[in-house]
């Protein structure tokens, strides 16, 4: 996927470039609004990462030019201002999502993934059966089983497992899990998600030799088969 990153903070831009490239994207990098506007409007990108405070033309200006040119390239706004007004203004002007600095890279990656998937034709998403190794999930009957053994999960544990399974191989942060599974849109200062994951792991992994649910320290959790 081709991404355009418009960010004037050189260090942050370089780290975004490195991180996104390592995750399989082709990334173009510009450091000011005027160049950003030219590339966003004229280039062919799958996603634009747009900082709000830019020299030349600010993020809103770039966004306005992009939408005025009838391009519906998804735009992810990066902003240091947490103000609600800025977010609302950004979304109203046609941004698809926003991230407030400081953000975790895993968070950014998850949002980029979600935006890119939005453009892709629905296919695998519609599946009612999910499988990973000997783990099987039936989303309709809401049953989970591993090695033919039924797993006794609560409703939220099932939802958590389904999310991890659908996004297998991706590191999902605690914030993202709290948001997606429990609809809690804030950074909780409790260890609620850790405990919930621990309890899920006790049912999912503890009775079996092969572990599927892994903790990535400092970043979150990932569901994958590791040999």
């Amino acid at each position: 996927m081709r991404l355009l990153v418009v960010e004037d903070e050189v260090k942050l831009a370089q780290y975004l470039h490195k991180g996104l490239t390592e995750n399989g994207h082709v990334v173009d990098l510009v450091h000011d609004g005027i160049e950003g506007r030219r590339l966003a409007v004229g280039g062919d990108y799958d996603l634009v990462l747009l900082d709000l405070m830019l020299p030349g033309v600010d993020g809103f200006g770039v966004l306005a030019a992009l939408r005025a040119a009838q391009r519906n390239t998804p735009v992810l706004m990066l902003t240091a201002r947490g103000q609600v007004e800025d977010r609302v203004r950004g979304l109203e002007q046609g941004a698809d999502d926003y991230l407030v600095k400081p953000f975790a890279f895993s968070e950014l990656l998850a949002r980029v993934g979600a935006l890119l998937r939005r453009g892709a034709p629905a296919g695998a998403q519609a599946a009612t059966q999910l499988q990973l190794g000997d783990l099987e999930l039936d989303l309709v009957s809401r049953k989970a089983q591993r090695a033919q053994q039924r797993l006794d999960l609560t409703a939220k544990e099932f939802k958590l497992l389904a999310l991890l399974l659908r996004r297998r191989g991706q590191i999902l942060s605690r914030t993202l899990l709290a948001e997606q599974v429990w609809d809690m849109n804030f950074d909780s200062d409790t260890n609620v998600v850790e405990v919930a994951v621990r309890r899920l792991r006790a049912k999912l992994d503890d009775p079996f030799p092969a572990k599927l649910l892994h903790t990535v320290r400092g970043m979150g959790y990932v569901l994958e088969e590791r040999s």
Partner: peptide, 13 residues
């Protein structure tokens, strides 16, 4: 109740 659901695991713990 939604918040309680979120805290279910820690409460039980």
């Amino acid at each position: 109740h939604q918040v309680v659901e979120f805290h279910e695991a820690t409460l039980e713990d």
